[in-house]
Design a protein around this nucleic acid. Structure first.
Lengths: 270, 270
DNA sequence: CACTATTTGTCCGTATGTATG
DNA sequence: TCATACATACGGACAAATAGT
């Protein structure tokens, strides 16, 4: 985030903290990973040599080597003896950009650029908080689905939905794998009216991390939404976790405070 | 998300990762700090004993003691020989809920419930991406500030702002520590018109983690905003990182897709 | 007044991890 | 690669303060 570039290899040793509990090699790894992800190096560009990094960061060679090893094992750099280190990076990543009005999972157009995999489809007793939000009894069963959405074969979102049983029974497992949930609800006579949505962040749990092919603890964008019908009864509760590299909300704001959300558009970022 | 409390001292050893680079004692410290901040213990309530923590977390006494020492040195607990450990001042945690129309940092009302600390105030050459967004030359200097905002003495947001030099020179370091930036800009004759805002997630870097008293790599909600004046010139670029436990966006959606954002409200969570 | 159980404080020995030169 | 120093983590032992029997 703080980047200055006076000279090819500036002293950035102030970005590591020798009194911090995190081991030095990990601090160095995080720092270098940040610079690569921030686009500081072009694809195939030479990475600083070990000696240069020693000068830049004021740490010993072993520490640098361990950090480079981690970068290498994650595929961010390629090291070759006598040839130096090169940044592997920038495949041009497609990142979805959505308006907060969202309903992304229900957007027909999205179906053309992404694919969905239905991981689970079941009737279970809801967690306490979900039962409250759906205004059902804790012992009542609700329909629960678990879905992973991919863009260009990269899984980028993990969604769990809860629907009251009587509504859920109106469509099948096969239908939900194809049709947007909101369509199915309306087909069942539900008159969707409004929704309350919360946006925050969360670390990836182990099962989510496995589904999204990322490490446990990785940061994810979290959206929770409860959808209501015209008589103000909750008809759907959904929780979605997004990989931030592949998904973001974008909003345009007017001075008055009135927002003008974008419909989703795919945009290339470098 | 899933919280169960079977018994007074449940096994929560799955919350620490022995293969992580962060030292165990620090993981334990963060875990216990979170539980205290989450309001798991009443004021003056007895904290689990060392032996209980050993059983709960499956770590050695030395590790527990070091974590407790850190909690004690930060005033979260008080330890007395033969009497045990007590939790000090367990604040009911307030989570800020904001509308995505945000401009949170410029909200006057917010000033009453939160405090700001100005970490840096300087003129620097901007990072490449910021230079582009602010439409200034890479070698031109821009004003850069770094601020941490706290709620009830818990730091929950870390903000970096960039303002073109000629605008930045119209106010002082002292003023920015008190007045909302948007006010200062308008005082300088800038006619703020609209903004583009992106919401995503990001892992905490080391310096950010230190400022927010969290572990490096912790998930943070990330908001990036560029503000424009009436003639469509960028006048401010700001990047804010929020701790998700203390901050979230909340939006109400109408079926038409029109959003109705909430003004911020403070709400207690248990 | 012991006696005991509990709990924190202090110390040792050892093994492993981290970092330097 | 090696020698060295320091930090981390484990297991254990014992002391000191407190409360209850």
């Amino acid at each position: 985030m703080t980047e200055l570039s006076n000279g090819p290899h500036p002293d950035i040793s102030d970005q590591i903290d020798r009194s911090a509990p995190e081991p030095l090699y990990h601090q160095v790894f995080l720092l270098l990973q940040d610079r690569i992800n921030a686009g500081a190096y072009a694809d195939g560009e030479r990475f600083p040599t070990e000696n240069e990094l020693i000068a830049m960061l004021n740490v010993s060679r072993i520490t640098i080597r361990r950090a480079l090893q981690e970068l290498s094992s994650r595929g961010l750099i390629v090291r070759e003896r006598a040839l130096g280190t090169r940044v592997v990076n920038p495949r041009t990543v497609t990142r979805l950009v959505a308006g907060v009005e969202g309903m992304l999972e229900n957007n027909r157009r999205l179906g053309r650029s992404t694919t969905v995999r239905l991981l689970r489809f079941e009737y279970v007793q809801p967690p306490l908080d979900v039962a409250k939000l759906l205004e059902v009894n804790e012992t009542d069963e609700v329909q629960r689905t678990e879905r992973v959405r991919s863009i260009e074969d990269i899984p980028f979102s993990y969604a769990v939905t809860f629907v009251p049983e009587q509504i859920g029974r109106t469509y099948s497992r096969e239908e939900i794998a194809k049709e947007p949930l909101l369509h199915l609800l309306e087909r069942s006579g539900v008159r969707v009216s409004h929704a309350r949505q919360t946006i925050s962040a969360q670390a990836a749990s182990i099962p989510v991390a496995r589904a999204l092919l990322i490490g446990a603890g990785a940061p994810l964008l979290r959206t929770v939404r409860t959808v209501f019908d015209e008589s103000n009864r909750p008809v759907e509760h959904i929780e979605v976790l997004y990989r931030p590299e592949y998904f973001a909300y974008e909003i345009e704001l007017e001075r008055t405070g009135v927002t003008r959300d974008r419909q989703w558009v795919a945009s290339k970022i470098t």
